[in-house]
């Protein structure tokens, strides 16, 4: 079984995001970029499936700017076998919407015929939490989102999902799309030798036109602004003072 893992290049989760003063977006020039943290978890899971003999090949895919090559090299260094880069924009500030990404991924899935697609639950830049579900819809496949445990057995995967009330287990017929949550695993770091090896692994470059997909956005960004900020308040010197303050303010 082949496993496809879509990985997105996003601003590193440790970077303090700065909104551009002209309201056009967030500053991404000269900012540290990394693989979306959820996608690292997805890559890790795919590699573990391969190590367990349940997957035969792990293919990482990224849609975006050419620099997403680095993200794919990271996936290859972690253990993915090959990569596909779909260059869909020249401008690092142009985000490709989940619907367009899902259409490209669906076209790739039709070519590659994976038995499983492992997506992240959410990209930490646009916070959409949509691509995996959209991809499953376009392929007519089943989906299991927000996975914290995945067991692949024959033609099905049993998935424990993190939901509002706790956990839900579902079984989904393969091929399927599974989106992964934070507690599924702890992604490995790529070792130096593996980083070197990754440079020689195949990385194919494509464009949306190769798949006949129009990536024009459906949502026009009118404005991006800073959220209202909070100010630091007062520091109490003791529990008693804190209680007095809270009572005085009518908070408790």
């Amino acid at each position: 079984m082949k496993v496809l893992v879509p990985v997105k290049r996003v601003i590193d989760y440790n970077v303090k995001v700065r909104v551009r003063s002209d309201g056009t977006g967030v500053d991404l020039a000269n900012v540290k970029m990394s693989m979306n943290p959820f996608d690292e978890i997805a890559v890790e899971e795919a590699i573990r499936l391969k190590e367990a003999g349940l997957a035969s090949e792990v293919v990482a895919v990224s849609v975006g700017v050419r620099q997403a090559q680095e993200t794919l090299r990271t996936a290859l260094a972690m253990g993915a076998d090959r990569a596909i880069l779909v260059v869909a924009s020249e401008d690092v500030h142009q985000d490709i919407e989940p619907l367009a990404v899902a259409k490209i991924l669906a076209a790739i899935a039709k070519e590659e015929q994976p038995g499983l697609i492992l997506c992240g639950k959410q990209a930490i830049d646009n916070d959409m939490n949509a691509t995996g579900q959209m991809l499953a819809a376009l392929l007519g496949w089943g989906q299991a989102t927000f996975a914290s445990e995945i067991k692949v057995e024959g033609e099905t995967a049993t998935v424990v999902r993190e939901v509002d009330g706790g956990l839900q287990a579902v079984s989904v017929r393969l091929p399927a799309v599974i989106t992964v949550d934070l507690r599924l695993n702890e992604p490995r770091y790529a070792s130096l030798p593996n980083i070197m090896k990754a440079k020689k692994k195949p990385l194919e470059e494509k464009t949306p036109a190769d798949y006949g997909v129009d990536v024009a956005p459906r949502l026009r960004v009118i404005e991006t602004r800073e959220p209202p900020s909070r100010k630091a308040g007062v520091i109490a010197k003791s529990v008693d003072e804190l209680v007095d303050m809270l009572k005085g303010a009518g908070v408790v």
């Binding site: 995001v17 967030v26 619907l99 646009n126 916070d127 959409m128 949509a130 991006t224």
Partner: peptide, 28 residues
């Protein structure tokens, strides 16, 4: 497209939502 986590409705086609963990608010 789906528009996730809408925090304000400007009009029938214009919506505000947080991005980047709420570090920015975007109107689309």
């Amino acid at each position: 497209m789906v528009i996730s986590d809408v925090t304000a409705i400007r009009d029938a086609e214009t919506f505000e939502r947080p991005i980047y963990a709420g570090n920015a608010l975007q109107t689309v």
